[in-house]
Design a protein around this nucleic acid. Sequence first.
DNA 1: CATTCTTATATGTTACCACATATATTGAAT
DNA 2: ATTCAATATATGTGGTAACATATAAGAATG
Lengths: 96, 96
Amino acid sequence: MMDNIIKKLRAARKTKGLTQSALGAKMGLPQSHISQIEAGKIDIRLSSFLEMARLLDLETMLVPRSLAPAVRSMLSGDGEEASRPAWQPDNEEKLS
Amino acid sequence: MMDNIIKKLRAARKTKGLTQSALGAKMGLPQSHISQIEAGKIDIRLSSFLEMARLLDLETMLVPRSLAPAVRSMLSGDGEEASRPAWQPDNEEKLS
DNA sequence: CATTCTTATATGTTACCACATATATTGAAT
DNA sequence: ATTCAATATATGTGGTAACATATAAGAATG
């Protein structure tokens, strides 16, 4: 479904530490509109989607279905390499 | 820009040997509308785009910009089956 | 040529996104 | 509890995609 891909936009925004207002400012849109979009309440135009993705440093790509799993596995290691250690000594207790 | 990705839809349709009418039938849309879309004359809704891609066996994916080149190179060999070597002697770019 | 297949334009109606603006709700922090 | 930040809802207008239908232009085929 489509709100799946929309949810990725929201996740990307949060990852970048942007608020809806901040993103809205970049796009020249009011925060309220960003909210509607992310909530999947409206069916935005393709150009709006592409611009929003671009502003979040995401590229929209069309992948042949047969290759999608391979691409997905490539993407599964989050965002980029320079961020978090590949693992962490699992420390079961008390993390909040 | 955006008509770039639209052009890929047209290319995919042709690759699959579908006419605008045939694709339109699958989507429940008139051929005239498909023509407008492919010509980049209208700015379609995201759901329409996603469905069109899906009917052409294409998956719409959001790829972090930093990983886009790697994904692109993965896709550069004509979108066919899984019978390609996973790997090829470092032939860096050369993209479409 | 004529005929068929494919694609491009044209016109009109309806539905709804884009946008503005305002307010409400949630949530965190002090 | 009272701010203040972030997000969610609400209302209204204008523009345009979605859709139907019709026709014209191109491109092949016989």
